[in-house]
Design a protein around this nucleic acid. Sequence first.
DNA 1: ACCTTCTTTACGTCTGATCTGAAGCGGGCA
DNA 2: TGCCCGCTTCAGATCAGACGTAAAGAAGGT
Lengths: 268, 268
Amino acid sequence: MREKPLRPHLRKSAGLNASLPSGAAREAVEALGRRIVAGIWPPGATIPIEPELAQVLGVSRATVRDAVKVLSGKGLLRTARRYGTRVRPLEEWHLLDPDVAAWHGPAHPRIGRMFAETTELRCAIEPAAAALAAQRATPEQVRTLLAAAEALRPGEVDIVALFEADRRFHCTILDATDNLMMRQLQGIITTILRISYEFGVQKVDGRPVSREGHFLVAEAVARGDAAGARREMERMLDLNRAIAEAYWRNRAMAENPAGAAGGGWPGV
Amino acid sequence: MREKPLRPHLRKSAGLNASLPSGAAREAVEALGRRIVAGIWPPGATIPIEPELAQVLGVSRATVRDAVKVLSGKGLLRTARRYGTRVRPLEEWHLLDPDVAAWHGPAHPRIGRMFAETTELRCAIEPAAAALAAQRATPEQVRTLLAAAEALRPGEVDIVALFEADRRFHCTILDATDNLMMRQLQGIITTILRISYEFGVQKVDGRPVSREGHFLVAEAVARGDAAGARREMERMLDLNRAIAEAYWRNRAMAENPAGAAGGGWPGV
DNA sequence: ACCTTCTTTACGTCTGATCTGAAGCGGGCA
DNA sequence: TGCCCGCTTCAGATCAGACGTAAAGAAGGT
């Protein structure tokens, strides 16, 4: 068993978690995962037995078992002899897992709650990350931050480019903390950002995103001003939160004029 | 397929992530996971082929594949046809996963770094969580917090009881945020806390843990004082950080008097 | 009503075969 | 020489079928 030099053979992973490279198993995971998250089988319910799933998904029982194992690893399922395979309660789902988060489609009843809670998490993490980044960012990371802020043009029509710049900005902040734990949160932030852009949340007040806010953070990081970076990031996220709150309130009102929509924005 | 009423059949999960309930597969995951984390096979290296692993671990190839699949889900491995199964770079490991964190034994070269980075994460998360908890904690959660602070007796000799009280305090704070994303972090905080206690980090200055600090936080939460809860939690974690920093510096000096130990406390 | 078997069930594990995609080699051509 | 193309090889991916095993639920005795 000689060690081979590591040579990346998957230059462009599609952006998502590439834990299952191949086809059939990956598709089985996706299919089952989406159904579970969609609530086809509510938490606590027993899903069909393995042979039945194999038939429905058109794969062998071994592949079904692989998929179930992956989903168990994400906290969605629990298996036991004679009990079948059951959907675990929502509290145990690994919601920080990008896959699990992404399986919540735009129309999902809980998407409002997901967004609200992620925003709270970001309000806790990102200011601290910005402060650390101000102390540790490399010159290249500073350049990336400034370039990403520059690319957030208010009149930009290319929504994908906007998203990409936004994503790169926030991921670079987390990268620059040089803290592997903080970097783990890049996935969930990217996913939630993507969902936001798919929704158009970022444009609720007419302006796409806060270009100034991003610049103020980037400049504070560039001059090593930890307190300033933290403060500007806080300010930016407060704005973000206000925007999101207004958006979701409107959406809830439109769907359910009587009051708060079920599973929508919680009473924060 | 009738839905069965949910009836918890595993009242007491042993505290760890119970994704693999059974024996052989769980053991295979543990065995492989520990070896990978221990660095038997460095990142980028190809681990032995499946039949060989099956022989070494004393299980069938199917079970090995199950284990590999679980570890791929935790970001430790990547498999591909003809490439074999390789250890992924450290940056891609899911370090927030309690299992992955716990596989870093007390003597692991990276344990100092793990501890430092987790502390930074806690300094970001827990003050914000305390503020949210002050707004949302139920009376029962408040009682739990006060009881846990009460149990942190300076003269307590039962280290397990101390750990349990400390753990319950911090997990209850996260619970009280009523934020599922924040609750995801209970696992990693519990794991790191456990490692701290196993090391004796909490006693480096003669006193076990800051009982007063916990009480001040609990009382602020009890009276709904979000700003106060945040402030006291920050103060407590600063103390925690100072203690840990001193401990790790001493440990690094003891092991490598010439300077910073490899992989120990990074230049923060 | 309670406890003790006993049966049933569906996941857990094993065996062994076949399929597939990518690396590496070698031949052919400009 | 140097590049392109197809063949072989390899190791994971998938499949098929069988048996093991623990726990739920029924059956029976006290």
